[in-house]
Amino acid sequence: MFMYLARRLGVSLLVLWLIATITFLLMHSLPGGPFTGEKRLPEAILKNLEDRYRLGAPLWQRYRAFLGNLVRFDLGPSYRYLGKDVNQILAEAFPVSATLGVLALALAFGLGIPLGIQGAVRQGSFFDQLIVIFTALGMSLPTFVLAPLLLYLFALKLGWLPPALWGGPAHLLLPVVSLAVLPTTLVARLVRGSVAEVLPAEYLTLARAKGLAEGVVLNRHALPNALIPVLAYLGPLAAGVLTGSFVIERVFALPGLGEHFVASIYNRDYGLIMGVTLFYSTLLVGLNLLVDLLCACLHPRFALLHRRGGGY
């Protein structure tokens, strides 16, 4: 077990290093630079900027410096938010995204799992049909439509909730719901599919034959097996949801991490690009590792087959 863990950790580090290197190279092939403004600056000023922010150095030197900082867990300065470190920016933004993400995940699993189970158990019923339609509909509205619609309806038309900004609990409601819709439908569908798959299995028939009540069969025998694929899905889903959503943070004006995934590239904020990439990748790799270990403990045979990744 220890060997397995050590090997997995080693591989994870290798993966992270590869990702960091690829991103570093790609990032520097983008046209423009962090200080390109609306007007062309005089040569002298461009040179001053290059000197001060060490943008003129050859790529390999900067790569070496970057790696040197990285092993000390220092992501260096931001090129956009002057005087701030990338570490500091991530530390400010992540709690916001994490709060939203955890709540959205709770909602997604809290609602998605029961819905999925009910759908599977009462296959073909009217209720099940409703779930299929509902999940399909939940997947059919882009977030950038859903979020402004919710804002308009609940904040402006009805006036029940504040429209935006990071503040009290009421401010969380709309973003969490917007964020949770897609994961909820995904979880519900996944659970429905995998429960439906195990229901006819022999060991359940056996359990039923032993005279166990259907509820007990479901909870004690069917679910542990059926939920493994769902668990495997948790890693990438959580990494995606916890690191925030660009659209939702934009629409509701929340100071989360998601915005940086888009804005850092547009701003050519080299430090922050590396920061969000590594943060996301570490989170994903770490969560996948955790999930794999969990699966392996729960059910060694399934663990390898069902591993999947993703994120969006």
């Binding site: 993966v15 992270l16 590869l18 990702i19 690829i22 991103t23 990438p236 690191t243 660009f246 995934f261 888009v262 590239i265 690009i273 969000v276 990439t277 996301y280 990748s281 994903l284 790799v285 996948n288 990744g309 993703g310 994120g311 969006y312």
Partner: peptide
Amino acid sequence: VLYGVPSLL
């Protein structure tokens, strides 16, 4: 490796 990359970025 590719899975570990933030795809939106």
